[in-house]
């Protein structure tokens, strides 16, 4: 029985008057990769962004309901959003390295959170993070070059390494491969599989094969509702809802 890392109860999200998420309740496992799938505009990315309160930065966005991280309400007034985001990291759709050196991209998070005492400790954090993201061998000789000079796939792995460097508990990935070619995508998927167990991972994807390849749990969203949530194998072979079945067999989406 997998233990729950995060759980959401009756979450509603509004953009101004428009409701984007309706009564979503879901649990995210600690040891598994959870995939959110669904057609464009179904609210899967919006819901993902509620899990580390990135929607707070969107003007006019309002969240209702309860979301817990290890039993703590992350929308409670005592919750510090800066610490929350250090615990729940995020990787975005388009690789967004800072216009700094590769080294500085990784060191950015540890530095603001005071995770490294001195230069050699920081070197260690940078090296470990790049190793875990499978990028070390490609960039070890050019750590001082700009992060924006890397290829798209390398940039995305740099962003994953950057998230890992803060030592989060959960990593949220918002369509991390949609801007990448198939070979870079395969590398990221491999990386996700390696990271599983060390971090709770939630990945939003519009690519159903990808969900099937990397995840153990899958949630299907449609029109702001959570239609079905279960083991990935069940969702893809034996869905209980006709809407899920229609989507995965390609009738719409």
């Amino acid at each position: 029985m997998a233990s729950h890392k995060m759980s959401a109860r009756d979450v509603n999200v509004f953009y101004g008057e428009k409701q984007a998420i309706r009564n979503v309740s879901i649990d995210v496992d600690k040891e598994n990769v959870t995939a959110f799938i669904g057609p464009s505009g179904c609210g899967k990315s919006t819901f993902l962004r509620t899990l580390n309160r990135m929607n707070d930065t969107v003007v006019g966005c309002r969240t209702e309901g309860r979301i817990e991280l290890d039993g703590e309400d992350i929308y409670a007034s005592e919750m510090d959003v800066v610490l929350l985001r250090a615990r729940v990291g995020m990787v975005f759709q388009k690789p967004n390295p800072f216009p700094k050196s590769i080294y500085e991209n990784i060191a950015y998070g540890p530095r603001i959170h005071g995770l490294a005492e001195n230069k050699s400790a920081m070197d260690h954090v940078v090296e470990t993070s790049l190793h875990r993201a499978g990028l070390w061998n490609e960039v070890k000789d050019r750590l001082q070059e700009s992060g924006t000079a890397l290829s798209g796939g390398q940039q995305q792995r740099l962003c994953i390494a950057r998230a890992i460097a803060v030592d989060p508990e959960v990593i949220l990935m918002d369509e991390p491969c949609s801007a990448l070619d198939p070979i870079a995508t395969a590398k990221i998927e491999e990386l996700i599989t390696e990271l599983r167990g060390r971090f709770a991972i939630v990945i939003v994807t519009h690519n159903m094969q990808q969900a099937a390849r990397v995840s153990q749990r899958t949630a299907f969203f449609h029109l702001g509702e959570l239609v079905e949530y279960g083991a990935t194998a069940d969702i893809f072979t034996n869905p209980t809802q006709t809407r899920t079945q229609d989507y995965i067999t390609g009738r719409y989406g």
């Binding site: 990135m54 800066v82 975005f92 800072f98 950015y108 959170h113 803060v166």
Partner: peptide, 8 residues
Amino acid sequence: DGSLALGA
């Protein structure tokens, strides 16, 4: 967003 998501 990238910076905020790292807890800055």
